[in-house]
Design a protein around this nucleic acid. Structure first.
Length: 238
DNA sequence: GCATTAACCACAG
DNA sequence: CTGTGGTTAATGC
């Protein structure tokens, strides 16, 4: 991340056209001409392939990342293994909790689909928060939403059985991530299990169960939801 | 006790 | 990387 920062300062990248950005965040819509110009000069846009790491736990961080489009996974190096904590898609800010008041990243983020990310200099970002109330307000709204979502995820982990949690995840990918009833899972069975706190074996079993029960059509990583009503039932009664 | 749930292990594509 | 089968431990009638 430090490298990007130096490059930007030397103008070795073409500055992105923040003013006309089609993927402007709710917060960035409140930036005035001057501020947008400032953003353009202190920001670099990068194209990411599936599997590219965006930032890494334990490494010094000096950028806020704005994911214009794409899908990412957040994960933490735990005591014994890596744990996926969250999957999200752009447009979204990625590094606020880990960069804002922390020297080192407290978690890692990796693209799990082709993505576009803007690396914004942290001091520039802080300036906006300090001087532009509307900008700051929108950032707070996003942070609040994230916290509530995590509370729900936390509760579901303990209070739903595995069939319920698998249903939740399938619905999440369908409604939030892909906005379609058929999609290709961006995770291996192992990662899927890790994500909802179970084993790859249980994922395999339950997906084939759902397939046999006619709730989904399963073909490797390709999922087609055939009976969303029932899936939602299972999610509830989990 | 007996049934259910889910993790762990092992082996085979 | 996946799917399946057997085993086992925990929990709830």
């Amino acid at each position: 991340m430090f490298i990007f920062y130096t490059f930007v300062k030397k103008n070795m990248f073409n500055s992105p056209a923040c003013k006309n950005c089609q993927f402007k965040s709710a917060a960035a819509k409140f930036l005035n001409e001057d501020e947008l110009g400032n953003l353009e000069n202190n920001c670099a846009e990068i194209e990411l392939k599936k599997g590219d790491m965006i930032f890494k736990q334990g490494i010094l961080s000096s950028n806020i990342v704005y994911l214009k489009k794409g899908i990412v996974k957040f994960y933490i190096e735990g005591l014994y293994k890596e744990q996926i904590i969250k999957i999200a898609k752009g447009p979204i800010y990625l590094g606020i909790p880990t960069t804002f008041d922390e020297k080192y990243n407290r978690y890692s983020a990796t693209a799990i689909a082709k993505s576009n990310a803007c690396f914004i200099d942290i001091d520039t970002f802080k300036e906006f928060v300090q001087n532009n109330g509307n900008f700051a307000y929108e950032i707070i709204v996003e942070l609040c939403r994230n916290e509530i979502n995590l509370f729900h995820k936390y509760i579901n982990r303990t209070q739903k059985n595995i069939r319920g949690r698998v249903s939740d995840a399938l619905i999440f990918f369908s409604e939030i991530i892909y906005e379609s009833d058929s999609y290709k899972l961006p995770l291996t069975r192992n990662e899927f299990g890790n994500y909802i706190d179970t084993t790859r074996e249980s994922i395999s079993r339950i997906l084939t169960e759902f397939n046999k029960e006619g709730i989904i059509n399963l073909e490797g990583k390709k999922i087609e939801i055939l009976n969303k009503k029932q899936l939602k039932m299972i999610s509830k009664n989990g």
